[in-house]
Structure formats: structure tokens, C-alpha cells
Design a protein around this nucleic acid. Structure first.
Length: 572
RNA sequence: GCGCUAUUAGCUCAAUUGGAUAGAGUAGCGCACUACGAAUGCGAAGGUUGGGGGUUCGAGUCCCUCAUGGCGCACCA
């Protein structure tokens, strides 16, 4: 496939002096309005070096370029050179490319198999998997898919919150008020109720806190009884989490949570000490970060037990040694910005230059209409409930529309869950948002179901076209591309062309919403094309060309949805 | 108080990273199903890009300042 920006830059470079090819290429842009061309080149910056008025420069370039057959037309408008690509050739190139690549379209090999760790989801054991966890889970999964498509080898790590003083509290509560049968019946809800009770009771019985702390210390030292209870809580919780992961179609390469690193901390604490970074303060061991404008990193508490940051650093050191990652990505809420800055700095101070390869990918807060979510106060919306309701509603809509699907339940699952995922990935990561049932259950406009519907509609056209026509189109023989040069067909082809670059951009910025928006654009453009033109026309040549474009669009949309972690149903 | 982050149409969000007349969806209004799927498409309306300065050929985008919201700032994760 021709890289137009690059080709255009080369042509311009032949006609002006004083700028490198790269500089020129970065100046080539796509005009906001298609009426101004497919590509444009502003000449303001050249005025100084060439000592000529920008419009004059533009005129010279336009005249030189207009001789090239790549363009249908090149015109000068003020300081701009506006270029119109020859449509027939363009549509031919792009349709050929997409059909030949198929499921591979959008992928690239820029990653060259380099290892990228994606840490995401990471719920806390014995606590509900609620709507607040959806962001890390879904964004992380999409980033994994995008990096995989870019040719990286990804390692998905679910850094479970399965360690810390909270487990001292949990075990303490279980011993006082717990019941084995109840836990087995409904693990998370039951364990959570113990945890909540602990917090109520501790108000009047402060000695419970000491007891909990003592239990955690035992756990940390590997005392059998405590470890067994903890292991049991962990197993039961994971069963519940896996139910949600299965619904979302998400899996992991490793569930090495915080506890996994418990025996890997002493070595690194000693290293800090040896390098003279550790100092005592109010009984705790800290790394002072004042000269970097940050509060100190607390490595061990005054009672000697470790903290979150200690485990995160130990985990990073382990991962570097064990995986030798190229990038180590953390899909974690923006609330923890400081935490990551602190420990990245500690790793730098330790003298490891791979601190630069660790990236915190933050995202904004989800709150409820009644306020911030709070497990302790019971102000939570369970992720599983959201998914189930979305699926139920989808099923109702399918029944209502009386669509001919082989398997209503499976389709409802794909669309309902897709709707939730899509909604989550449509905005810029960093935005805070308020969860709303109305919004998550709305399937009109720029939504997941809209895109999936478009895909199903394309599939429907292809079924109507018949196998013979589809296989002829797929064979790419004797297609007369002059038949599909209408504005709407051309706009659609342009969006298909941009797709691989969109995937690269999304990867560079760790921003799945870039893919989401492009998928919406492709769907909108397809629907416009569909309404503007009759596809299955009498003229066999025209029909063949249009069917080829439909196959290409359907394929690109499907690949795009795949990068978001969504299915593309054939009927819905 | 300090730090990070956000602020664009009534609402939810874009804007190719400094380029031409700031675009979508949604809500409300009007239109289009005897053509391939109306979970759709089309039209009109909707804006002092939070305020004020600055940088330059050009600013939603960069700098300064103020305002408002969110988050964080030592033994939770």
C-alpha cells in the first residue's frame, strides 16, 4: 500500500530546498474539509528560508505536482497546496490491500516480537468486582490487543491485591464471626460482610486492630494456619472473578499478585540499604525524595512489615530479570500518579536505567450518581450485574425486532457485553465519569451495538449477494473500480486506508479510544454509503466492485472491534 | 498550603499534536421504510473553546495568571 504522506513529501522535497524529508512529511496534513483535498501542504514556514511569499511558493509546488499521475488535481489556495488523489487508483489499492490481508489488516510488525508487560485489572481479593474495576480491565485488555497487533509479544499480568494488612483484618474477622458454609455459598459477599463488621466493631474495640496486625505479621512469616485461610479466600475469590473475565472474554498469562513477591522483597530492601538510599524516620524505613519534590517513599513500616510500594518495586525488579521486558505497562487509576512517580524514582536511584521503560497509564475516576463508590458503605455497582442487565436488555430488543439469529443468547451476550466494553473505551482514558444505567443501556448513536449492527448489516448484504458474487469479489479479478468512485464510497475507502495508522497511534498513546472513534467513523461512513447507493444492482461489474468494498469495510470494522475486545456478530 | 489532572454546543465527547469556516453523538424540532436490515439515514437549530494577558503569519492546542471541579500529599492499596 502506498504511503501517501511519504510519497507526497518526496515530491515536494524535489521542488523546494532547506527542509529535510522528515520535516516536510510532518507538515503534510489532511484538511478538515474534504473539499480542500485529500492532503494539503501549508507553505507559511517556507517563507523565511525561501524569501518568497507563501502563496507564491504554494503556486510553484502545485504546478510541479499537478503533472504527477498520482493526483487527480492539485490546486493552490492561498498558502496551501491542496492535493486530490486519483480516486480510481486509490480505491483499487485500498480494497485490494484489505481483501488480501483479511484478518491481518491493521496489523504491523513494528514491535518485532519485543516483550511488553501489560499489568491490568488487579482486583482485591475478597472484595467485590465492581464497576470501578471495569476501566483497568477493559482498557488493559485493549492495550494488550493493540500491542499484539503491532507485533509485540505481550504478557498479561493480573496483579491481584492479595496481600497486606487488610488480610490480617479479614482473617481476624473470620475467626470472630465467620462461618465456613456461608463463605462457600457466596464467597465475596460473605467475606465482605465480615470485613465491614470488622470496621464497625473496631470503633468500640480498638484492640482488634492490634490483633489484625499481628495476624498479618504471622501471614507474612508463613505461619501455616494463616496461610491456609488466606489461600482459601484467594481461591474462592478468583472463582468469582473468573466468571466476569469469562463474560468479558479476557484472560491472563499470569496471576502473580502482590503475595507472589513477598519473598522477593528482603533482597531489594537490602540493596537499598547497601546503596545508602534507606533512612530511618519515625521508626519507619524510607527513601527521601524531597529533592525531587515528592513525599518520601515508605519502604517498611515501623513494625517492620512492608507496604504496597515495596512490593511494586520488588515486582518490577523481578519482571525485569524474569521477562527482560521492553516496556512494562501499568494500567492503574490516576489516583496513584504519585505512587508510580515515587517508585520509578527509587528504581532510578538504584541505578537501573530500565525505569524509563516502566510506564504508568492512568485513567480517570468512576463515580456513582450518589457519590464516590465505597465498598465499606455498600455504595457499589457490581460489574457482573451491569453485564447481565446489558445482556438481558439486548435479548429483549432482539425478540422485539424478531431478527433471525441462530442463537439468541449468544448474540445477546456478544452485543450486550460489547455495549459495555465499547462505552468504556469511547472516551479518553483520563476523563472522570459518572456511571449511569441509562447511558450504559443506550444502544443508539455512537455505541457498540451501532457498530456491530453495521457489521451485521454488511454481512446481510453479502448473504443476499450470494456466494458466487462474494467469492468473485474476493478473488479480486476483473473488478472495475471506476464503478465505485462516488463521494461516499471514496470517503469510506479513505477511512479504511487510515486504519493501520490509527492502530499505531493508539499504541503510541496507549489510548484505545482512538481505535473506538475510528471504528465509529468507519461504521458511519459505511452506513452513508449504504443509504446513498444501491449495492446489489443489475450491472454485474458495478455489483462486483461494490461488494468488494463492502467486504473490505466489514473486514476492517471486525478487526477494529477485535482490538477493543469485542465480537462482530454476523446477525443481530 | 503544595503537586498532578481536567474545563470545548443544554448533556456526553472529538479535533491528524501550532494550520483553512471548531466537528460527532445525544436531547428537542422536521423529513425518509413496497429497493440490499429504521439498533439506520438526511435536514435545520445549537459555540466569546472557563476568564484575562502573552508568544506568531496563524492558538481549542504553547507560556503566564486567575477561577471552578476531580485526585493525591508517611506507616491502606
Amino acid at each position: 500500500m502506498v504511503n501517501f504522506k511519504e510519497e507526497i513529501a518526496k515530491l515536494i522535497a524535489e521542488n523546494i530546498e532547506g527542509l529535510s524529508l522528515e520535516e516536510i512529511q510532518s507538515m503534510v496534513e489532511v484538511p478538515t474539509d474534504a473539499k480542500m483535498g485529500d492532503y494539503a501542504f501549508p507553505c507559511f514556514k517556507l517563507a523565511k528560508t525561501l524569501r518568497k511569499a507563501p502563496p507564491l511558493i504554494a503556486k510553484g509546488i502545485a504546478e510541479a505536482l499537478s503533472k504527477n499521475p498520482m493526483f487527480e488535481k492539485v490546486e493552490q489556495v492561498n498558502a496551501y497546496v491542496n492535493m486530490f488523489i486519483s480516486k480510481e487508483e486509490f480505491v483499487k489499492d485500498i480494497v485490494t490491500e484489505v481483501l488480501e490481508k483479511g484478518v491481518e489488516y491493521g496489523k504491523s510488525d513494528i514491535g518485532q516480537g519485543k516483550k511488553v508487560i501489560v499489568e491490568f485489572s488487579s482486583p482485591n481479593i475478597a472484595k467485590p468486582f465492581h464497576i470501578g474495576h471495569i476501566r483497568s480491565t477493559v482498557i488493559g485488555n485493549s492495550i494488550h490487543k493493540i500491542y499484539e497487533a503491532l507485533g509485540y509479544e505481550t504478557i498479561r499480568i493480573n496483579h491481584l491485591g492479595d496481600y497486606g494488612t487488610q488480610f490480617g483484618k479479614m482473617i481476624c474477622a473470620y475467626r470472630h464471626w465467620g462461618n465456613k458454609e456461608d463463605v462457600i455459598k457466596e464467597p465475596i459477599k460473605t467475606l465482605l460482610s465480615y470485613y465491614t463488621k470488622f470496621h464497625v466493631e473496631v470503633e468500640s474495640h480498638p484492640e482488634l486492630d492490634d490483633e489484625a496486625r499481628e495476624i498479618f505479621t504471622k501471614l507474612e512469616h508463613g505461619e501455616q494456619e494463616e496461610v491456609e485461610l488466606w489461600q482459601w479466600f484467594r481461591d474462592e475469590s478468583l472463582k468469582e472473578f473468573n466468571r466476569v473475565y469469562e463474560m468479558l472474554g479476557i484472560s491472563f498469562d499470569s496471576y502473580a499478585g502482590e503475595s507472589f513477591y513477598s519473598d522477593k522483597m528482603p533482597r531489594f530492601v537490602k540493596e537499598l540499604e547497601d546503596k545508602g538510599l534507606l533512612q530511618e524516620s519515625q521508626g519507619a524505613q524510607i527513601v527521601d525524595l524531597e529533592e525531587y519534590g515528592m513525599s518520601p517513599a515508605l519502604i517498611t513500616k515501623s513494625d517492620g512489615s512492608t507496604l504496597y510500594i515495596t512490593r511494586d518495586i520488588a515486582a518490577a525488579v523481578y519482571r525485569k530479570e524474569h521477562y527482560d521486558f521492553y516496556k512494562n505497562l501499568y494500567i492503574v487509576a490516576s489516583q496513584q500518579n504519585l505512587h508510580f512517580q515515587q517508585w520509578f524514582k527509587v528504581v532510578e536511584l538504584l541505578g537501573y536505567d530500565w525505569y524509563k521503560d516502566c510506564v504508568h497509564i492512568p485513567f480517570g475516576l468512576v463515580s456513582l450518581e450518589e457519590g464516590t463508590m465505597s465498598t465499606r458503605h455498600g455504595r457499589v455497582v457490581f460489574l457482573e450485574d451491569v453485564l447481565n442487565r446489558a445482556v438481558e436488555q439486548t435479548k429483549e430488543i432482539i425478540m422485539e425486532k424478531n431478527v433471525n439469529t441462530d442463537n439468541v443468547d449468544e448474540t445477546a451476550k456478544q452485543v450486550g457485553i460489547g455495549a459495555v466494553i465499547f462505552q468504556e473505551l469511547s472516551n479518553n482514558r483520563i476523563k472522570d465519569y459518572v456511571f449511569s444505567w441509562n447511558k450504559v443501556l443506550n444502544f443508539d448513536g455512537e455505541t457498540g451495538p451501532y457498530v456491530q449492527y453495521t457489521h451485521a448489516r454488511a454481512a446481510s448484504i453479502l448473504r443476499k449477494a450470494g456466494e458466487q458474487v462474494v467469492s468473485n469479489a474476493e478473488a479480486l479479478k476483473n473488478i472495475d473500480y471506476s464503478k465505485i468512485c462516488s463521494e461516499s464510497a471514496y470517503e469510506l475507502a479513505k477511512l479504511l486506508y487510515k486504519f493501520p495508522q490509527v492502530v499505531i497511534d493508539a499504541g503510541e498513546k496507549y489510548e484505545p479510544s482512538i481505535v473506538t472513534r475510528h471504528v465509529v467513523d468507519m461504521a458511519q461512513s459505511f452506513n452513508r454509503f449504504y443509504h446513498d447507493e444501491h449495492i446489489l444492482v443489475e450491472d454485474e461489474g458495478e455489483k462486483l466492485a461494490k461488494v468488494a468494498l463492502v467486504i473490505a469495510a466489514k473486514n476492517a470494522i471486525k478487526n477494529g472491534l477485535g482490538l477493543l475486545g469485542m465480537e462482530a456478530p454476523e446477525r443481530m
